[in-house]
Design a protein around this nucleic acid. Structure first.
Lengths: 180, 180
DNA sequence: GAAAAATTTCAGCTTTTTTTGAAATGACTG
DNA sequence: CAGTCATTTCAAAAAAAGCTGAAATTTTTC
């Protein structure tokens, strides 16, 4: 089987290592983030063995990490003619990529928090001795999360092209909003 | 010394435990997040020993975690008359709290990434063999981060009251922007 | 300025997370 | 369907992160 051995340039290495560190700071496994970085900068799809070599990690680790990335919807399988191994690639569009991450984090972390807050509020309200202070604090938090989730949901439906355009509008955005 | 022993209600416990878990998913130490949650819901300032008791952690752990929270600007010392121990409290306003977290994360994580990307681009450009593809990918990422950082910087200067108001505008926001 | 109180530091221990490699499973080929 | 190649699973090892308690340091009090 013909096999392209991946050889990283210093710049590529630097980027992949940094992305890995970034990942750890955001609760994402270092290897997972590195694989994502590698797929992001590599021009063609890559197979699992190539990843093991270039990142010096075990084959099984690649398997698990890829699954993780797939569960986020960030990596998809592609097939190369005449090669029965799985090849992988990630999204091209950075905005789209971040949107997916945001979506998933909302689903996995914000939504459960909202449910918890609602639960707490309910439990609080039907409890005998009303703890007004805690109730107030939780309510404030709930309002914040609900407002944020709501605003995000709205933003979500806007095509990335429009988002880019709005981002480029600069100061005009706020002026418009303040005027309204 | 008079000492209020903190006794948590089930709802308070539930909230603090959840906040701790949330923390871990965002790369924040569980104890740090729990202390923050406790300070958030508690009506008065709390001293370190009270925290050790209510969260069942070592005094030294409280010390370290409080320092961490202080380094984020989320906790401040207050002094209680006739008590020489440090007492702690966190911010009241949730929007303000999240703004601070965002600010810090930008400073600690986004800004260094931007620097790295600029470095990479530069190194890439003066390198002998131009790797056009990597260059393109890094440029796209850089543009995204710069645009995001820029938009954030703009938003940052808006008072939280205005942010609340904008968030409450709902669909109107996008209609306005699309029209512009 | 010595004693007491409060806080911080840090080496070593514990727990959790991550990684590995061997074995099991699955998938394709002739 | 037997053999090969590819992927996944999972128990154990390694690494990283987190926590503790004793000792050191700092702060306050008298």
């Amino acid at each position: 089987m013909s096999e392209t051995t991946i050889q990283l340039t210093p710049v590529q290495q630097k980027f992949i290592l940094h992305w890995g560190e970034m990942g750890t700071k955001w609760g994402i496994n270092r290897t997972v983030a590195q694989i994502h970085a590698l797929l992001y900068i590599w021009p063609e799809s890559i197979n699992a063995e190539q990843i093991t070599k270039v990142l010096s990690v075990a084959r099984s680790n690649v398997s698990t990490s890829i699954k993780e990335l797939q569960s986020w919807g960030l990596v998809k399988n592609v097939h190369v003619m005449g090669d029965r191994r799985d090849h992988f690639e990630t999204l091209e569009d950075v905005w789209e990529m971040f949107r997916i991450v945001m979506d998933e984090r909302k689903r996995r972390e914000v939504d459960p928090t909202l449910i918890l807050l609602r639960d707490c509020m309910e439990e609080q309200k039907k409890s005998g001795k009303r703890d007004k202070h805690t109730e107030g604090r939780l309510e404030a938090l709930q309002e914040f999360f609900e407002s944020a989730a709501d605003s995000y949901e709205r933003l979500r439906s806007v095509p990335t092209a429009t988002l880019r355009r709005i981002a480029k509008m600069g100061d005009k955005v706020l002026k418009l909003l303040k005027a309204a």
